[in-house]
């Protein structure tokens, strides 16, 4: 299986990708912002289209685009008293529409929409692996350094403000880092796997453990194992890697539900 160098790269890519999203997953599920993961990955589509049209660096320009749009979503919701979920839905549709029009204008027929949905980890390059390693280091450092602030921000942002816990800056970094995780993982993992990896490992973890730090550890282990076994199965059964990982993780989720019942009894 690993006689080809690209296969080893792909395996490392899958593992690092799963790990990076899994560390954020408990926060995303507890804050009930899993829709953000889905929305930001769709919004990234317009960013990718702009990069293709103007011949820009794909990852970097898409990341800037996604961060700008997520800041705009916050500003528009505050100014016009719209629910954030509504504003996000509007931006999601507009970005997808814009992306499709830009792709058709640029006449870049080599762009494959399916690979954007499911990603293709086999195409991962060495420099992308390095970005994933740096991303994982940033994620871990952030979660370890600001554990207390993140904990209370996730619990209740308004009460954190009352007790003068400095969550403002931490929340900004959280959102920017979340956007970075989504954009950097998009090419290899695709929208479906990115969205799944931001939810499933955490909900599985909370069926087994009841503290945040343990949930982060279990979430990372689940994502790591799913990526490894999903990768192995997809190679041997000749199936798409991203989709196989999602289905395997879903299987663990359904099995973990029986543990949840026992834990709550």
């Amino acid at each position: 299986m690993f006689k080809y160098h690209f296969m080893l790269n792909a395996l490392f890519g899958s593992l690092l990708s799963g790990l990076s999203l899994a560390i954020f997953a408990p926060y995303v599920t507890l804050r009930r912002i899993s829709y953000m993961g889905e929305a930001l990955s769709h919004i990234a589509f317009a960013g990718i289209a702009i990069a293709i049209l103007f011949g820009l660096n794909l990852t970097f320009s898409t990341l800037i685009f996604v961060i700008l749009i997520s800041l705009a979503i916050g500003a528009i919701s505050r100014r016009h008293k719209l629910q954030e979920a509504n504003t996000i839905s509007i931006f999601l549709s507009v970005s997808m529409a814009l992306g499709i029009i830009l792709i058709s204008v640029s006449k870049n027929y080599s762009f494959d929409l399916a690979s954007y949905l499911f990603g293709n980890v086999l195409l991962i390059t060495g420099s992308e692996l390095y970005s994933l390693i740096i991303l994982n280091i940033l994620n871990l450092t952030f979660v370890l350094v600001f554990y207390k602030e993140l904990f209370y921000l996730t619990y209740n942002a308004e009460m954190a403000k009352v007790f003068r816990i400095r969550t403002g800056l931490v929340n900004q970094i959280f959102l920017i880092l979340l956007a970075a995780n989504i954009v950097i993982n998009l090419k290899s993992a695709g929208i479906i796997l990115v969205t799944a990896q931001l939810i499933l490992p955490a909900v599985i973890a909370f069926n087994f453990v009841h503290t945040l730090h343990r949930a982060i550890i279990v979430s990372a282990i689940v994502a790591f194992l799913s990526a490894f076994i999903g990768f192995y199965l997809s190679f041997n059964l000749n199936l798409p890697t991203g989709a196989t990982i999602v289905l395997f993780e879903a299987l663990i989720y359904f099995l973990s539900l029986s543990f949840r019942g026992k834990n709550n009894a």
Binding site: F146, Y147, R166, V170
Partner: peptide
């Protein structure tokens, strides 16, 4: 289902007095 204990919530009242990023 938030994974906080009663002690975690009581500690929230002190967390603002502790510098950013300190334990």
């Amino acid at each position: 289902s938030f994974p906080a204990t009663a002690l975690d919530i009581a500690l929230m009242g002190l967390a603002g007095r502790i510098p950013l990023a300190a334990r």
